[in-house]
Amino acid sequence: MASIFTKIVNGEIPAYKVAETNRYLAFLDVNPNAKGHTLCIPKQEVDQLFDMDAEHYAGLMAFAHQVATALKKTVPCKRIGMAVIGLEVPHAHVHLIPIDQMDDMRFQNKVRLSAEEFTDLANRISQNM
Rank of each mutant, 00 (worst) to 15 (best):
56 H>C: 11
89 V>G: 03
101 Q>E: 12
126 S>R: 13
56 H>V: 08
4 I>T: 14
33 N>C: 07
37 H>T: 00
113 L>D: 11
56 H>G: 14
114 S>N: 00
15 A>K: 02
6 T>G: 07
43 K>V: 09
2 A>S: 03
85 I>A: 06
16 Y>M: 10
100 D>M: 05
54 A>N: 12
97 I>T: 08
111 V>A: 01
1 M>F: 09
46 V>S: 02
100 D>G: 05
82 M>K: 10
39 L>G: 13
107 F>S: 07
3 S>V: 12
128 N>G: 00
80 I>L: 02
30 V>F: 03
50 F>R: 01
8 I>C: 06
50 F>W: 05
4 I>M: 14
109 N>E: 12
88 E>A: 06
101 Q>K: 15
115 A>S: 04
107 F>H: 09
3 S>C: 08
44 Q>E: 14
9 V>T: 12
55 E>I: 08
33 N>V: 05
113 L>E: 08
84 V>Y: 01
109 N>V: 14
114 S>M: 02
125 I>P: 04
18 V>W: 00
44 Q>W: 07
30 V>L: 10
87 L>P: 03
53 D>S: 12
112 R>N: 01
70 A>I: 07
38 T>H: 01
48 Q>I: 03
78 K>L: 10
120 D>P: 04
103 D>P: 00
50 F>T: 08
119 T>N: 15
79 R>Y: 02
91 H>G: 09
80 I>C: 01
10 N>E: 13
35 K>P: 00
4 I>S: 10
40 C>R: 01
10 N>I: 04
81 G>P: 14
19 A>M: 06
44 Q>M: 13
38 T>W: 01
60 L>F: 01
116 E>K: 12
112 R>H: 05
23 R>Q: 11
48 Q>N: 11
115 A>Q: 06
7 K>Y: 15
65 H>I: 08
16 Y>Q: 12
95 H>I: 06
59 G>T: 13
72 K>R: 13
119 T>V: 14
96 L>P: 11
23 R>I: 04
77 C>V: 13
83 A>M: 12
121 L>F: 14
39 L>N: 07
63 F>S: 02
114 S>F: 00
20 E>I: 11
29 D>E: 06
15 A>Y: 03
74 T>G: 09
62 A>H: 06
36 G>L: 05
72 K>W: 12
79 R>G: 06
41 I>P: 10
127 Q>L: 04
72 K>G: 08
59 G>E: 12
